[in-house]
């Protein structure tokens, strides 16, 4: 750093000897020292090294067993089931969530109340309890029938056959997800400046097009970070489905270590898969967010 003007010279005290003018710009700058920062760095580094050392040298991790199972067919299949549960849960959950969000934003008090009631109920019931309800649906309703409400029916299904374990799981995850998705979408829509809808209305743009072309793309900016959280948490949440004996990742790992007793390395197999796929989702999130950031920067 250099000073742009000469230091002030005191001219009033003419009798005193004039101080020599100093060019501060030519002096060496001594930065402030931070000894405690260095102490903290040293302590943290020691702890990290200890942790890494234990991780590598502790034979309890059984990295050999880990390597055997990590890409085993049964595990890959289980990962695939987990991904399917996540995909269907997210897709159906957000589809229903968007409907619920617009119901809650509607001018009709009835639609608002129904949407609020749904969100209230499904946020209040623990996912695991809800999943077990769906799994036991056949106990409550023996047959599902399509037809005139309260009138004659056209087709009917056995609930037992219709709601298999997998569809019960997808249904449970999606209905649960919809409650959260609805609030996220509603938040995103509310974050769009009301002038945008007004301008679209003033231009005579059709109602659906106003939503699809003007409101939702802008709402996506605030929806996406929260939605990504939800997808990731649903992805990991699929492990709850193991209570229904569905062959997803966590269930399969439990089955294997129940047989061979190698609990720790098999938990690591599941952990590493969850971490890898979550990272992939985070990367995807980055690109999707960049797409919807069009026009926001100079």
């Amino acid at each position: 750093m250099s000073l742009t003007s000469d230091p002030p010279i005191d001219k009033t005290t003419s009798g005193a000897p004039a101080r020599p003018a100093v060019d501060y710009g030519a002096l060496k700058v001594v930065p402030v020292r931070h000894p405690w920062r260095w102490a903290a760095i040293a302590a943290t580094a020691v702890l990290l090294t200890q942790f890494a050392h234990g991780f590598i040298t502790n034979t309890g991790w059984e990295w050999g067993v880990f390597a055997d199972y990590f890409t085993a067919d049964v595990i890959i299949k289980a990962v695939w089931v987990t991904l399917q549960l996540t995909f269907y849960g997210t897709a159906l959950g957000f589809a229903l969530g968007i409907v619920l969000a617009f119901m809650r934003l509607s001018a009709s008090r009835f639609l608002r109340a129904v949407s609020f009631g749904y969100i209230w109920a499904f946020r209040s019931i623990p996912l695991i309890v809800q999943l077990l309800f769906w799994f036991n649906l056949a106990y409550l309703y023996k047959k599902l029938q399509f037809g005139i409400p309260f009138g004659p029916g056209f087709f009917s299904f056995d609930t037992m056959g219709l709601v298999g374990a997998m569809s019960a799981a997808v249904l449970g995850l999606a209905l649960h997800q919809a409650a959260y998705a609805a609030e996220i979408v509603r938040g995103g829509v509310l974050a769009v400046d009301s002038g945008q809808l007004e301008a679209a209305a003033a231009l005579g743009i059709p109602r659906l097009r106003q939503i699809r072309r003007i409101v939702l793309p802008q709402a996506m900016r605030s929806i996406l970070p929260n939605a990504a959280n939800e997808v990731i948490s649903l992805f990991k949440g699929t492990s709850i489905v193991s209570v229904m004996a569905i062959g997803e990742l966590f269930y399969q790992v439990q089955v294997i270590y129940g047989r061979n007793g190698r609990v720790v390395p098999l938990l690591m197999v599941a952990t590493v898969w969850y971490v890898l796929l979550t990272s992939a989702l985070s990367v995807l999130q980055h690109y999707v967010e960049r797409h919807y950031a069009k026009g926001t920067t100079r």
Partner: peptide, 26 residues
């Protein structure tokens, strides 16, 4: 109906104080 109102509005241009351009469109 809303659709008919929207149609009427296409014949009446409106310019807002805050422009209200769509920021995500060119």
């Amino acid at each position: 109906r809303e659709r008919e109102v929207l149609k009427q509005r296409t014949q009446i241009g409106f310019v807002f104080q805050n422009f209200n351009l769509f920021p995500h469109l060119t």
